[in-house]
Amino acid sequence: MNIVIIDYKSGNLASLKNSLENAALNFKKNIKIIISNNPEVISKADKLILPGVGDFLNCRKQLLKIIGMKETIEEYIKKKSRPFLGICVGMQLMGNISYERGKNKGLELIDADVIKINNEVNNIRVPHMGWNNIKVKKNLDKGFLSLDSSDFYFVHSYHMKCNNDNDILASVEYGEELVAAVCKDNILGVQFHPEKSQLSGKKFLQQFFSWTP
């Protein structure tokens, strides 16, 4: 099984690769982790991961700068058979519009807007940084359900506001209920960083390995 991480110069991808390789140890299937910016390699992936750190606008610019990337991702997703995972800004990029540094269009894969975390509430500090437990909202399968109330590592100042509750896979409490994970057909997105979430992160990645949408 080939898992491809999309390389669009958004930070260090080594930790993500390391953690995927660590999660793949002792896994029944032979898993190969590839970092690539080549649309041809990406279109042949068995599972595709869109990472993202920093801010939405920079990530968007960098991603769309690669010729054929947008079309390749859209084509991959349209087939609906193979899983796609967006992490942090990689998830936010799937929305319609982000309000970080102006107003910028996303890939419009999930009906959602990306807005700033409301910090006018008592002791809500931004970024939302640290370990917080998620609440699984959707009964996709037992694997995802088993992650209910696990702690994951979050670091973000903006959050995804879904227009369709049915797209929300998990939520997290931070002053208000924020989206922690989304799922629609073969698309999965997480606001937290599984690659930085020790054991619960490993469990999540293994769940992603075995997930068949």
């Binding site: 260090n12 930790s15 390391n18 670091v155 020790q198």
Partner: peptide, 11 residues
């Protein structure tokens, strides 16, 4: 830093 990041899956 590099060696640590390979072994520790935390920030």
């Amino acid at each position: 830093v590099n060696k640590t990041a390979k072994k520790c899956f935390m920030p």
